[in-house]
Amino acid sequence: MEENEVNKIIQDEGLTNFNLFEKHPVKENEVVIKKENKSWEVFSTSEKGSAEGIKVFQNESEALDNFTERLRAKNKVLEYFRKKGL
């Protein structure tokens, strides 16, 4: 997957709570992808903003695939809680 494909998925599916290549400072409850030297890190942040479940990739395409999967899952969970009023 390429970054332009991810951007299209985000727009088409109305996904939120993400930080794609550090476009802004990391916030709480986000899915993050960032480049670190010659690798890519994908992780989620907690309600306190700490990184959780860091996975390191040597290939940008695989990192973007993982980022997209996590982002879709996070948005499903957030939508569930919104519907429940939590």
Rank of each mutant, 00 (worst) to 15 (best):
M1C: 14
M1W: 12
E2S: 08
E2A: 04
N4M: 10
N4Y: 10
N4V: 09
E5R: 06
V6A: 10
V6D: 03
V6M: 06
N7I: 05
K8M: 03
K8Y: 02
K8P: 01
K8F: 01
I9T: 04
I10V: 06
Q11V: 05
D12N: 06
D12V: 04
D12L: 08
D12G: 05
E13H: 07
E13V: 02
E13N: 08
E13Q: 11
E13A: 10
G14A: 12
G14I: 07
L15G: 00
L15Y: 00
T16K: 03
T16H: 00
N19H: 01
N19P: 00
L20M: 06
L20D: 08
F21C: 09
K23C: 10
K23L: 06
K23T: 04
P25V: 04
V26P: 02
V26R: 12
E28T: 00
E28K: 00
N29G: 01
N29Y: 00
N29Q: 03
E30M: 00
V32R: 01
V32I: 02
E36D: 12
E36W: 01
E36M: 05
N37T: 14
K38Y: 13
K38F: 14
K38I: 10
K38S: 15
S39L: 05
W40L: 06
W40G: 07
W40T: 08
W40P: 09
E41H: 13
E41C: 11
V42Q: 09
V42G: 07
V42Y: 07
F43M: 07
F43S: 05
S44T: 01
T45V: 11
T45G: 11
S46M: 09
E47K: 05
K48H: 14
K48G: 08
K48D: 13
G49N: 06
S50D: 04
A51R: 09
A51F: 02
E52S: 11
E52V: 05
G53T: 04
I54D: 15
I54N: 15
K55A: 13
K55M: 14
V56E: 15
F57T: 14
F57R: 15
F57C: 15
F57M: 15
Q58F: 07
Q58T: 04
E60K: 15
E60P: 05
S61W: 03
E62G: 09
A63T: 06
A63D: 07
L64T: 06
L64S: 10
L64G: 10
D65V: 12
D65I: 09
D65H: 13
N66I: 06
F67E: 09
F67K: 02
T68S: 13
T68N: 11
T68V: 10
E69I: 00
E69D: 08
R70S: 14
R70I: 13
R70M: 15
R70L: 14
L71R: 04
L71S: 02
R72C: 08
N75D: 14
V77W: 12
L78I: 02
L78A: 03
E79T: 08
F81P: 03
F81D: 15
K84Y: 11
K84I: 13
K84V: 13
G85A: 13
G85P: 08
L86M: 13
